[in-house]
Design a binder for these strands. Structure first.
Lengths: 162, 162
DNA sequence: TCCCCTAAGAAATTTAATTCCCTCATACAC
DNA sequence: GTGTATGAGGGAATTAAATTTCTTAGGGGA
């Protein structure tokens, strides 16, 4: 992967509807080699997938809640089941195992506080958890699916900084 | 918006490379009306954009850090500048204003702990913050851009449950 | 020097998106 | 009841884009 690939990724992270020909023009290639680079990055799994992003307000999921979960160092079995249960809630859009105080952190999206309460009840009905604490986001100031490409490892045969 | 639109959104949230003809078959329409529904939802902003999602490991940003920030109830000016500074870091992929103990929460992606430290130094060099605490994610168990469509408001003339 | 390998590009071909035009059903006015 | 406007669906033609094929140029290594 070189700086051209990086340029391509930068553009596709922003807008994947760009025609290959336009993309090629922007990165300074003709369509064929540009197309082949994209194919290769898809095969290699650098490009995982292409998706449509929806407007949370229009879809009625404008409220984000961060849920911090502490457990009593349960069995491996419990942990497995816990993950399985949590993952299948569509409201849980992110789910991390953490170091430090909190054991797990969830990002949950719902229409309003009431819906969050309903979600919370459904969750604790399905699995026993020692300690849960919820923090509400008042405003989403930034949300992007674009990963920084500055750390990417590139061939620097003919270096460049795009 | 009705259940057909919802079905379309469900599919496009998963994979936006689906050909309109295939999509149409799956939702039980022919291509023309299906295409028109997609156009309309793009115009209406329900579909915000289409993007490529990259593999964080291959891009060398596998570490997620949640950064909790407390401020001393600063001036509006300070808050404005704070947001502007934070937003422009490409490592900050999410940024929320919170209720409760913590004032702001960031999700930051970097290659490793060392890179996080470098990011942290760059951040505090650019803006004064009272209290910062960092929590590292050991594992990303779930991450999806798919919003739950169950809360969407739909015309239920001819009801259905897809 | 010659050959091989890799990447680029032009042109042809295939496939998919988009438009055009027609039909049907519902609703509302007269 | 009849006429008509409106909105949604579908088939076929058209346009645009993706994909393939074939050809060319550069850069080592034998």
């Amino acid at each position: 992967m070189d700086r051209l690939d990086r340029k391509i990724l930068r553009l596709l992270q922003e807008d994947s509807t760009l025609a290959v020909a336009d993309l090629a023009k922007k990165v300074g290639l003709s369509t064929t080699p540009c197309w082949r680079r994209i194919q290769k990055m898809e095969e290699d799994g650098v490009i995982r997938k292409r998706v449509a992003l929806l407007d949370p307000v229009k879809i009625n999921t404008k409220v984000t809640v961060f849920v911090s979960i502490r457990t009593n160092s349960h069995s491996t079995e419990w942990l497995k089941r816990f993950s399985e249960v949590i993952v299948e809630f569509p409201e849980v859009v992110e789910f991390y195992r953490m170091s430090g105080e909190v054991d797990y952190l969830l990002r949950v999206v719902v229409p309003d506080i009431g819906a969050y309460d309903a979600f919370y009840k459904r969750m604790i009905a399905r699995i026993e958890i020692r300690d849960v604490s919820s923090a509400f986001a008042m405003e989403q100031i930034k949300y992007t699916t674009e990963l920084p490409l500055d750390y990417m490892v590139v061939d620097n045969q003919k270096s460049g900084d795009d």
